[in-house]
């Protein structure tokens, strides 16, 4: 990439402390119509940090609140409780106007590249839009857009094409280029590869890895595919029904999962290896994830948990500090001991 010093934030900021710090983050949506409508707590007291240049994977099944968490961090949603601190500054209730400078620093990449790109606009316009908003001239913005296309592996000559002329993988590259336009330091990527063909997913995973190294980006990588998350992240947080049940360095969580949910989740993923599949011991969970509109009492996982006992039905386990000599945290009354 060229030496474009305008894309990186100035060095004036303190570099100690995490880049992103989330504490007790909660999102309660008002219930729908009807008499039985109750408020839905989609995210419930979630807390984690993301260090500079680090990738935190946020995994879980549908309805676990992982996307809602991501949307609160980029402030597409205003949290109903808790705080989001970016670079030492609480941004959880900033006004749209005060958020504007921060939007340069925190960007988002979406799941479906085609539906997140305006079909009527050219790639030049799509990528340059954030720059125009920041007050750059049209010529500058266009030049920068061409550079960004090259950076993400697109052919800059295609700058005047429209999204439908690109394949799914290329469209996701456009979405990434747009996110990079303002020189962000944190990217929230919500299922960035799950809508892509298998043979194309690896290209985008590799691209995001390279960009992270070249631009010192931090990622919050939200995904349901545990194999992809293992490949891209440094640490991983597992969510179930709005809460984090386990968080820690990925080597630890993947090699020795402590929460029964993490264990069964990992064992449910089929491996592309028939010999190992036949030899594998699987923990098959009963039932479906419950609805966040009527969460079970106590530990919300207890109705499906093979280890549940009486206390699990009444008391909610907290995500306490890690045990002595341990690096990961787990919210379970009876965690697996290594």
């Amino acid at each position: 990439m060229t030496n474009d010093n305008t894309t990186r934030p100035g060095p004036a900021r303190p570099v100690h402390g995490p880049l992103l710090s989330v504490r007790d983050l909660t999102m309660t949506f008002p219930g729908g119509r009807g008499r039985s409508a109750r408020p839905v707590r989609a995210v419930d007291n979630v807390g984690f940090d993301v260090a500079r240049g680090e990738t935190l994977g946020l995994v879980g099944e549908s309805g676990c609140g992982k996307s809602t968490t991501g949307r609160m961090i980029v402030r597409l949603l205003e949290p109903t409780g808790g705080s989001v601190t970016y670079d030492g500054r609480d941004i959880s209730h900033l006004s749209q106007r005060d958020l504007r400078p921060l939007r340069q620093e925190i960007q988002m990449v979406f799941q479906d590249p085609h539906s997140s790109l305006n079909p009527r606009r050219t790639v030049a316009r799509i990528i340059a839009e954030p720059l125009l908003v920041q007050g750059r001239t049209a010529a500058e913005a266009r030049r920068r857009a061409a550079e960004l296309m090259e950076l993400v592996g697109l052919i800059p000559e295609h700058i005047d094409r429209r999204p439908h002329e690109f394949s799914g993988g290329q469209a996701q590259r456009i979405g990434i280029a747009r996110a990079l336009a303002t020189g962000p330091r944190l990217i929230v990527a919500d299922e960035p590869v799950s809508a892509l063909d298998v043979s194309v997913q690896a290209q985008i995973v590799n691209l995001m890895g390279r960009l992270q190294r070249e631009l010192s980006l931090a990622y919050l990588f939200i995904a349901h595919d545990l194999a992809v998350v293992r490949r891209v992240c440094d640490r991983v947080a597992v969510m179930y029904l709005g809460r984090i049940v386990e968080i820690g360095p990925k080597e630890r969580v993947y090699a020795a999962p402590a929460h029964p949910y993490t264990r069964s989740l990992l064992s449910a993923v089929p491996l592309p290896d028939p010999v190992r599949e036949r030899a594998r011991e699987r923990i098959t969970l009963l039932g479906d994830p419950p609805s966040p509109a009527s969460p079970p009492p106590g530990c919300t996982f207890h109705p499906r948990c093979p280890k549940a006992r009486q206390i699990c039905r009444t008391e909610t386990p907290e995500l306490g500090p890690p045990a002595p000599g341990e690096v990961r945290q787990v919210a379970c009354h009876f965690p697996e001991t290594p």
Binding site: V198, S199, Q201, A202, V205, D225, L226, A227, V228, R230, R231, E251, Y254, A255, L266, V269, L271, P272, D273, R276
Partner: peptide, 8 residues
């Protein structure tokens, strides 16, 4: 090209 769950 497949990332694998059993691959660190």
């Amino acid at each position: 090209s497949l990332p694998r769950l059993d691959d660190a």
